[in-house]
Design a protein around this nucleic acid. Structure first.
Lengths: 112, 112
DNA sequence: CCGTATACCTCAACATTGATGGTATAACCT
DNA sequence: AGGTTATACCATCAATGTTGAGGTATACGG
């Protein structure tokens, strides 16, 4: 397993939005899921995670309510709003364009 | 042509390193080259660009000296050091890993 | 049944880095 | 002369991730 990579600013949100797109989740579960599905490449620090989650509430991309986790603990469940789904789509295509553009530059020949 | 995208923190440097990998260049030329080769997706703001360039000097990834541009203007030419080339490689593979990991997460199925 | 680990959340201080917007100089074109 | 392009620099701001510390409640090993 390769070591962990720091997150580039701006990418956490897409990952979180994506995690939430499967249905309501609490923060801890989101972090686990992202870590697992990136083969441990991303280490999700809870400091950043909850900040991101709060951002989502502020922006209206998610709504939260207290509930009980699978393990019987008090946990805050986040659920995407329609705006959140739209944002996920937007960010996803944006990310794809971005990756593409970087690839172009990296593969570009020497300037004239 | 789609509109321009803001840069994600951490990506400017790779692009600049890559631009410099073709030989010494001055800032203005670097910006042009990146913009052209990203099909205008990236707009390189000189504020950020020169900061990046200065960063490179500080870190020892590039050395600079004053010269004269193709158009006869005073310009500062930046050239990669061996450390800079190493850094380019490092960042390139790191970026690829990153993109890959994001792709994994984005394509991942719903959690168990 | 106690102690420690784990699940879960929060917050404040800090660092990095891109965006903004303003300054300066010289060449070239009209 | 005046405007545009080429070229560089800087100060300040904003966004967002990192670090690190703190807090509660449930689970689990001894």
């Amino acid at each position: 397993m390769p070591d962990e990579l720091d997150l580039l600013q701006g990418t956490l949100d897409v990952l979180v939005l994506r995690a939430l797109s499967h249905g309501p989740r609490h923060g801890y579960a989101i972090a686990q899921w992202i870590q697992d599905n990136s083969d441990g490449t991303f280490r999700i620090l809870d400091g950043a995670l909850y900040t991101s989650l709060h951002r989502m509430e502020e922006k209206g991309w998610a709504e939260a309510e207290w509930g009980t986790s699978e393990r019987g603990k008090r946990a805050r469940f986040y659920e995407l709003t329609p705006a959140g789904r739209a944002e996920l789509q937007l960010r996803t295509t944006r990310w794809e364009r971005y990756v593409n553009a970087v690839a172009h530059v990296m593969a570009a020949p020497a300037p004239a």
